[in-house]
């Protein structure tokens, strides 16, 4: 009899739980909002990313969080289309570049960052920025050397007369051009002619 009462009580609590749904979700959203309000995400500009891709200086992975259809329409070189983040698939020492709409990017950034992936950066202005600054860049009249330098990147050019220092990830958190603490650094290329099998 005692056991039957306990079983009935357990089932009653279970049924109430089904209708209660997700009581903690509101709190989860509060935490997300607090994170967004107090933490500025590290960003990388389309030009910097393009330079990293062309020079192969950074050991990075580009994660495209958009839908499969949009990814198939246009995507960044080497970008991986993912719909669910499985953390074990990513290396904390690698730079992770997030591309996608604001909400998806924020959620992914929060998940990575709160799990110790401090090398995660967001592509500034997303695919729109990539299109405007890299794929179809505009050059104003009477461009200076710097503007010519940037536009030439689009055509894999190497103009003379302007020397650009190594690209860095803009870190709004620290307000400097260096990555935030724990952020991934561009990886130096090995000197040519080295050994190896």
């Amino acid at each position: 009899m005692k056991n039957k009462i306990l079983i009935a009580l357990a089932m009653l609590l279970g049924i109430i739980a089904v209708f209660a749904g997700n009581p903690q979700l509101a709190k989860k959203q509060d935490n997300l909002n607090e994170f967004y309000a107090t933490h500025i995400m590290n960003e990388i500009s389309p030009i910097e990313l393009a330079k990293n891709i062309i020079d192969m200086k950074a050991d990075m992975r580009i994660l495209d969080l958009r839908s499969k259809e949009k990814y198939n329409e246009n995507s960044l070189v080497g970008a991986e289309n993912i719909d669910k983040i499985e953390l074990y698939q990513y290396n904390k020492k690698k730079m992770l570049v997030l591309v996608g709409d604001e909400e998806a990017v924020r959620k992914a950034y929060y998940k990575f960052y709160t799990n110790g992936y401090f090398g995660v950066v967001v592509l500034k202005d997303g695919m729109e920025g990539w299109e405007n600054y890299v794929v179809k860049p505009n050059l104003a009249g009477n461009p200076n050397a710097k503007e010519i330098y940037y536009i030439s990147l689009h055509f894999l050019g190497q103009p003379t007369g302007y020397v650009e220092s190594a690209p860095a990830i803009t870190s709004p958190t620290t307000g400097s051009d260096k990555p935030a603490k724990g952020g991934a650094m561009p990886v130096k290329k090995k000197a040519p002619g080295g050994g190896g099998c």
Partner: peptide, 18 residues
Amino acid sequence: SFGVMVFAVLVMAVGMFV
């Protein structure tokens, strides 16, 4: 949802006890 999982674990526990 969390609630559905609570119910599922309770059913599993009751089944195991029985």
